[in-house]
């Protein structure tokens, strides 16, 4: 069970308390390749916490912060709620898709970048905004978006 040792460490920290399932899965997800909860991982967590597989699966599919599919090394989430729409997030969307050569919802072939829409993450004062691996970048337009992608490429692709 070597591959699960990191998962065990998270479970230990939470004293195998199934009440903390939502938080446990968030931490487990970060330790997994592709940063998602695979069926095997879900099954393992369910077994160790002595809860049903369907309980774990329901939680994974219910919460937006938990993923059932792998994402790239750099997860870029563009806010698509009202304020960012009003603040022309379409320009940011176009710039992101153009710079990365993929559409929203897709991952680049080298598995480096994933583009997604997300709902409001409370950065409306710097709208339009994205989250890059959870870190917020705001006040974006076409130029600053292209510069952001260039910076991320330097950090992750070289």
């Amino acid at each position: 069970m070597n591959e699960y040792s990191q998962i065990d460490r998270v479970l230990q920290r939470y004293h195998y308390d199934s009440k903390a399932l939502v938080n446990i899965l968030q931490e487990v997800q970060e330790t997994c390749k592709g940063r998602y909860i695979s069926e095997a991982t879900a099954e393992y967590v369910a077994e160790r916490l002595d809860v049903t597989k369907s309980n774990v699966y329901e939680v994974v599919t219910f919460f937006a912060a938990l993923r059932e599919h792998p994402v790239g090394e750099v997860l870029i989430q563009l806010c698509n709620s009202t304020v960012c729409k009003v603040k022309k997030n379409i320009e940011v969307k176009n710039a992101l898709e153009e710079a990365l050569g993929i559409q929203m919802g897709e991952t680049t072939k080298d598995k480096k970048f994933t583009l997604q829409y997300t709902t409001c993450f409370g950065a409306c004062d710097v709208s339009p905004a994205v989250r890059v691996n959870k870190v917020v970048y705001g006040n974006l337009d076409r130029e600053t978006t292209l510069a952001l992608i260039a910076k991320l490429r330097r950090e992750h692709c070289e």
């Binding site: 903390a20 939502v22 968030q26 309980n55 939680v59 919460f63 912060a65 709902t119």
Partner: peptide, 26 residues
């Protein structure tokens, strides 16, 4: 501290508590 997991409905008190007990936030 308990961390939410990206569900608007969990702002509603009983959904919030459901999620704190290890369930989907309904």
């Amino acid at each position: 501290v308990f961390s939410g997991a990206g569900a608007y409905v969990c702002g509603e008190g009983s959904s919030l508590i459901e999620s704190m007990e290890g369930h989907a936030g309904r």
